[in-house]
Design a protein around this nucleic acid. Sequence first.
RNA 1: GCGCCUGUAGCUCAGUCGGAUAGAGCAUCCGCCUUCUAAGCGGACGGUCAGGGGUUCGAAUCCCUUCAGGCGCGCCA
Length: 581
Amino acid sequence: MGFLVNIQTLLNQRIQAAMVASGAADDAPALVRQSAKVQFGDYQANGIMGAAKKIGTNPREFAAKVLEQLDLSDIAEKVDIAGPGFINIFLKNEWLGAQLGEQRKSERLDVAVVADPQTVVVDYSAPNLAKEMHVGHLRSTVIGDAVVRTLEFLGHKVVRQNHVGDWGTQFGMLLAYMERLRAQNSKISMALSDLETFYRAAKTCFDDDEAFAARARELVVALQSGDEECLALWNEFIDISMAHCEETYKMLGVSLARQDVMPESAYNDDLENVINELQTQGLLQESDGAKCVFMEEFANKDGEITPIIVQKTGGGFLYATTDLAAVRYRQKVLNADRVLYFVDARQSLHFQQIFTLSRKAGFVEPTTSLEHMPFGTVMGSDGKPFKTRSGGVAKLSALLEEAQERAFQLVASKNPDMAEDEQRNVGRVVGIASVKYADLSKNRTSDYVFNWDNMLSFEGNTAPYLLYAYSRVASIVRRSEIDVSSINAPITIAAEQERALAVKLFQFEEAIQQVVSDGMPHFLCAYLYELSGVFMTFYEACPILAAESGLKESRLQLALNTASTLQLGLSLLGIETLERM
RNA sequence: GCGCCUGUAGCUCAGUCGGAUAGAGCAUCCGCCUUCUAAGCGGACGGUCAGGGGUUCGAAUCCCUUCAGGCGCGCCA
């Protein structure tokens, strides 16, 4: 039998029970955390002081009473009271070794599947199909995908929703330009092979040519009223643009597929219903000809309310309307328990409004959780939003090409003896991993600086460092010439470097729990970086292949568990590993 | 004007939701390759956690306030 729960949860449960038995309130938390310093053991319980205060006793005396009720002799070597009333827990080496053996037999490294799986709808990536994907789409796409993979791994039912922008006034301009090209007998598919150029050309016509602009506006109306020719043209455009996105997803290693696309236009027929529903409920108010909802939650001190406009003067709908329809769909059709929106932080007011209104209007069950997972902007080294050298918006595909090329140059210089096709492949994996990891490893909510040298460095919390750590283990396994699946020797923990590695290996589950609860993959990145560091230290201090029989098998298993954990962890982040680099 | 976010070492970033002496990497300096990949490891240096109040056994973390920066705020998405 493996872990039922991770160590932290296990200790929490046991210590809390002991606290209650010693007279603490039923809900007094044990607050077990990884210890801040080695002298404080492996885990520390911080809840004693607070609980003692509540029942009016001396914290250290209370801690002593708790210890009398607490039996951790099966897993802990030593349990101490320290400082004002901390409990320090030192895990037992024998127990660590035995548990590691169990972990190695499990394909999922003993990480439990959640007991109560949820249906989690995740809205991420959502590029605007009018243009090509650019660097601004990186964060939503990469972070969303990592969270999706982690949720699925833990056993939740995930429904990906790629809420692509395929509707709106700008499409009139694009369709008008397609019409013009067609009239000139130009190949439309050729022109659309570079969407960025196409968009700029259309925009130039729109700005400079009055007749063109008028035609563009006509086409918007025609499109929205379902004109067949117009729709055919639009479909052609969308198809090509979507194919561009899919190419980028493939290069990036993102799990989004065509079936995950639920575009804005899919809600068109439901927008009228949303308005009617709001009307029926008396939530709607007309203001300057537009239909709005005024909610007191969004009033300032003077009572002035920032409304949501759901229908323009003249009848047009807005993205708020679409988002409301999407909430309804996600609740009523997809049966979401939780909906996560990986969308730019600048839209946080918008989402607060949508969420508040959705609750008021009963579009979601009270128990359904709607969570905006905002993220900051990617900045250049000048501290301003990231641009190309020429000052334009960086196309994502071009950025990824550059990453692969830079990584290839690096590999070729460090490892000139490797065959070129392998260097290319290493360059591809390292390049893509570096871009993704640089993004994933930073706290989601803050802006971050895009810097080639930092992300491609082999030092520090970077993808190349992690991939290198993994390839070192792979190299040892190759050289050992042992059929690793047949190893059955016990794992013995003696050296401090072995011990540090063993403890760290158990904390994988704690890291991925944080990823799903907060939608923040950087917790997993930090964990994998620490694991790699602890492994490197172990690797330097503890010879594996040269060790005596028995010890060799024991250490080899520690290395194998490290490899499995790195590979699984990186795969949850959407990052490939390399056996050689 | 109102609201949201951010401010931690020279630089890039963490800080497990109120816990013990605030941590990494880069840069700088000093060590370690006849032994499993030195793309590595060990060590040193470096801090008024933007400033000021408050809450309490305890605050980078919570509250108030000032300053600096970013972003939003009725018919774009």
